[in-house]
């Protein structure tokens, strides 16, 4: 019987309700105080302006640019097109998903509406959120790979592997992420893209240097977490596995890593939550992630307070989801 699934009715002390009340009062005081202060400086709250930065309803229009008569409305393979015949010219307009506003035989002038439809478009904040999510997920995946390899190399008795791992870890942990991002973009980025240009090959977009900086940064911390996790597994486990004839890799894969993995998950969760928050620094290399997107809309929105709060809440939603996901994974591993 799972104890956590049982309903337990806890009898609470009267003082519990008193202090719970104090907590709620404090919360209300902070929020109310903030609100009153904004009234004091005549700040006008415009929450209604926020949703447009998530999705906007945009009108898509197809207009004529010649004078003439609608000669035909063709449908070929599901795609509709309007053919307009002028005095000595002819134009074909692809309609796409839009609804027709003209019929065969109508006379149209330049600028006249041929077809139109409204489309939901992601707003700039939505795009920023998506970019933050994308960059974070890719960086986390690479960070895991780099971290596991480095963590295991760090424990190797081979000096080349061990010292390389140690140097990498110390370099990364000893300098600010902001500086590392600059180095990735302005040093490595310039080098790589100039070399590529000399070869006549296309350029690497800024986002990949951003992902690179976050992944190598997280990788160093993941390596230390992995190392500690492996070292926390008792030596007897390795000895038992090796005494049965398993080689180093079989022992790692079947015995050590599965056990280490459970202990690694909670600190890894913390590291990945940091990574999501650290991705906000990527704005400085022109990656329009959530923070940069917010900064951009704030300038034109007339609602800076609302937008910064929304920005914080969105980060919270991302980190909270990730932490729930990893807690679920941890429980799953404990059961199996």
């Amino acid at each position: 019987m799972d104890a956590s699934s049982e309903l337990v009715r806890i009898r609470r002390e009267p003082s519990f309700y008193l202090w719970a009340g104090v907590f709620l009062l404090l919360l209300a005081a902070v929020v109310g105080g903030l609100y009153l202060a904004t009234l004091e400086i005549d700040y006008v709250w415009r929450w209604y302006r926020v949703p447009q930065y998530f999705v906007s309803h945009r009108q898509i229009e197809v207009r004529a640019d010649i004078k003439g008569e609608v000669d035909a409305i063709r449908t070929e393979g599901g795609a509709t097109a309007v053919v307009v015949k002028g005095r000595d010219e002819e134009a074909v307009y692809a309609v796409g998903k839009s609804a027709l506003k003209v019929a065969k035989g109508d006379t149209v002038y330049p600028g006249d509406l041929l077809a139109a439809h409204a489309e939901w478009q992601p707003g700039i904040l939505m795009e920023g959120l998506w970019l933050t999510l994308k960059v974070s997920v890719i960086a986390i995946l690479f960070g895991i790979v780099i971290g596991f390899i480095t963590g295991i190399a760090r424990l190797s008795s081979n000096p080349a592997l061990k010292w390389t791992a140690m140097t990498y870890i110390e370099l990364i942990r000893g300098s600010p992420l902001l500086v590392q991002i600059m180095i990735w973009y302005f040093v490595l980025g310039t080098l790589i893209n100039t070399l590529l240009a000399q070869q006549g090959i296309g350029q690497v977009p800024a986002i990949w240097f951003g992902v690179g900086s976050l992944a190598t940064f997280a990788g160093a911390y993941v390596a230390e977490i992995v190392r500690a996790g492996i070292q926390s597994i008792h030596r007897g486990q390795t000895e038992a596995a090796r005494s049965l004839g398993m080689n180093y890799f079989q022992c790692m894969r079947c015995v050590i890593l599965p056990q280490a993995f459970r202990r690694i998950i909670p600190p890894l969760a913390g590291q990945f939550i940091s990574l999501i928050k650290d991705s906000s620094l990527l704005g400085i290399i022109a990656i329009r992630e959530l923070t940069k997107a917010t900064r951009e809309v704030v300038t034109t929105s007339l609602a800076p307070f609302e937008l910064w709060f929304i920005c914080a809440v969105l980060y919270l939603a991302l980190t909270f989801t990730l932490s729930m996901l990893l807690q679920y994974l941890e429980r799953r591993l404990l059961v199996s």
Binding site: G236, A240, G245
Partner: peptide
């Protein structure tokens, strides 16, 4: 590893694999 496969060892502190069932400990 070839030699070790022919030499079984039983330890003072058992050293069973805690993440595997009894059956999996023996079949691994």
């Amino acid at each position: 590893n070839k030699v070790r496969a022919e030499v079984g060892m039983v330890f003072q502190s058992f050293n069973l694999f805690p993440h595997k069932t009894v059956l999996d400990n023996i079949t691994l």
